[in-house]
Design a protein around this nucleic acid. Structure first.
Lengths: 116, 116
DNA sequence: TTGTCGCATGCCGATATAGGCATATGATGG
DNA sequence: CCATCATATGCCTATATCGGCATGCGACAA
């Protein structure tokens, strides 16, 4: 291995939720457990496609499976999202402050130009 | 275009923060503006490497640049993280509930085994 | 104008996906 | 044991990175 293209999505929740379809799956699962085919149809993707995304979600622990007769019901296990929420939350005070800083920045530009 | 490998990191904040190094950069910028070289050194990456990550962050709007003499100071613009925080926050009630569900799930397994 | 400093880009190699398809697996009901 | 339904995998193609290196470029000071 000489060069890595990207951290394996398989071991990183941030990467797992970087995929829109996977976020959609998680969102759907908020309503309760669902079989693969159901999810696939609802999200307009093929069954294999859904299975693959579900696998990624399972490997990072955001989803868990349970056999129910012939089907396999996928359920949400949101605990893994907590660290993400906390990391992003660490920036909370900045996205209010950012406005001000940007304003200050713009003011600075104007000022600078007038000084020319 | 017949098959896409992945959504362009360039237009998606979720993808932008899926990169550990980029998260580190954002974290460092919480302390204030910094020139590229500074960030690169502090994070143990090459200058070109830092520039590239900063470019991605700039393109999704998480970072902004300001010329300061010979240097270019990069500053945080966390506003783009708000949507992420909100999306993840939508699962907040689930990561408490998840415990219970998992418990129920485990109980179910035990029960099932004993029934054999 | 010229030499430097600080950054941004271009190019290359190795890889990790995302999807589509066909097919292997598993569990169930007869 | 067999046919069938529900899923999981394998394989292949087109891409999108990530990192390393060398190099282009713009701003500044002498």
């Amino acid at each position: 291995m000489v060069a890595m293209a990207r951290a394996a999505t398989t071991s990183d929740v941030f990467n797992a939720i970087a995929e829109p379809q996977r976020r959609n799956i998680l969102a759907l699962l908020q309503a309760g457990e669902r079989p693969v085919t159901d999810l696939a149809q609802e999200l307009g993707m093929t069954q294999p496609g859904a299975s693959k995304h579900l696998r990624v979600l399972r490997e990072v622990g955001l989803v868990r499976v349970r056999g129910a007769g012939k089907q396999r019901l996928y359920g949400l296990d949101a605990r893994g999202l907590r660290p993400v929420h906390e990391w992003v939350g660490g920036f909370e005070r900045f996205w209010n402050e950012s406005f001000d800083r940007l304003d200050a920045y713009v003011q600075d530009l104007k000022q600078t130009r007038q000084e020319d």
